[in-house]
Amino acid sequence: MKVRVDVDACVGAGQCVLAAPDVFDQRDEDGMVVLLVEDPPAELEAATEHAALLCPALAIVVEK
């Protein structure tokens, strides 16, 4: 699985961090998403997909 984030679209909602804290973090100043791992291991795939579905800004793209 490959993950990309569109920082430009991100609204800093942090839903991704709540859903998959090992894959996403946020910048301190403005809350913009920070991708921690581009190719999450199998055990994090479900959480990563869930984060992408929850993101209100559609800023997370997951490719399988």
């Binding site: 942090g14 910048r27 100043e29």
Partner: peptide
């Protein structure tokens, strides 16, 4: 307000 990370911790 412009403090996203702390906010998440306080949720």
């Amino acid at each position: 307000w412009n403090m996203a990370r702390q906010l998440l911790q306080d949720r």
